[in-house]
Design a protein around this nucleic acid. Structure first.
Length: 272
DNA sequence: CCGGACGCCTGTCGGC
DNA sequence: TGCCGACAGGCGTCCG
């Protein structure tokens, strides 16, 4: 499940191979992603100049070109890899973006929750990006900011920090891990948590994401980086997917609760 | 505005 | 062995 560390690992792995190159051709084998891949994507990309930069906003990747940007979202099961241009496609290899370097950027996404769209300038005004919350590594993202934002909210704090209109890049895995580090119960109402605990949470979110980034992200099932290699953070997870195992801090068994359609993992003795 | 439910999608797994 | 339901879950959308 690509969250901020997986998307950022993908971005970092692609920069050296993609920036400064032009798109030669685009092959869409299956346009049925979250939204249809635009029919004119090939014309747009091949008609633009070279890819100037790759940016990340939340879980979105933006490949900046003249006149607009290619937006990519990996959804739940997507990954972007670089392959030699002639590489035969495998199952769920939906889109190839052929570069002038004899390599292709290949999107594989079994569940097709991902997206590939062309965004005209100014990109930030697009509906998908305009209402996004703060980046966790933005200097404005502090405990005080979170505390103010949570005022009056009755939603469980785990949902609150997974809401991309509040703070971007945090999904089910890192939300659970950050709340464990901050020793906050995932079901506690967001508006009923004090400033000091939000300071702890903001710090825990940044530490968790930094550690995961250093490990190359988390691979539970589908995720691989742009070179095809899996991440390593799954071995460092304290609570996610560890129901019944002893809490690394106190030894009590990790619990699993269901919130709507999602599982949440926590230590009932450490997290209050 | 807020919160909760729903739908999209495929692969995997446990139970019978 | 095959069938079936549950589950994985990001996020836009809809509804009360």
């Amino acid at each position: 499940m690509p969250e901020l560390p997986e998307v950022e690992t993908t971005r970092l792995g692609l920069i050296a191979h993609v920036v400064g190159h032009r798109v030669r051709d685009v092959v869409v084998r299956d346009a049925r992603l979250r939204w249809p891949v635009p029919r004119d994507l090939g014309r747009r990309l091949a008609g633009a100049d070279e890819i100037r930069a790759i940016r990340r906003r939340g879980k979105y990747l933006l490949f900046d070109m003249s006149g607009g940007s290619l937006l990519v979202h990996l959804g739940m099961s997507g990954h972007l890899t670089l392959v030699p241009s002639a590489t035969a496609p495998a199952l769920h290899d939906h889109v190839d973006i052929g570069l002038d370097s004899a390599q292709a950027l290949r999107l594989n996404d079994p569940r097709r929750f991902g997206a590939m769209l062309w965004l005209r300038d100014p990109v930030e005004r697009h509906a998908l990006l305009s209402d996004l919350g703060l980046e966790p590594f933005d200097g404005q993202f502090t405990g005080a900011w979170l505390h103010a934002k949570a005022r009056g909210r009755r939603v469980p704090v785990k949902h609150f920090i997974m809401n991309s209109h509040v703070v971007t890049g945090i999904g089910n895995i890192y939300a659970a891990e950050a709340l464990f580090r901050a020793r906050i119960h995932p079901l506690r109402a967001a508006g009923r948590i004090g400033l000091a605990r939000y300071e702890r949470l903001a710090r825990a979110i940044r530490e968790t994401l930094s550690d995961a980034l250093a490990a190359g992200g988390t691979t539970l099932r589908d995720y691989v980086a742009s070179d095809g290699r899996p991440g390593g953070f799954q071995n460092s997870a304290c609570v996610y997917g560890r129901e019944g195992e002893p809490c690394p801090a106190c030894g009590a068994p990790i619990r699993c609760a269901r919130q709507g359609n999602r599982s949440t993992f926590y230590c009932a003795s450490c997290q209050r």
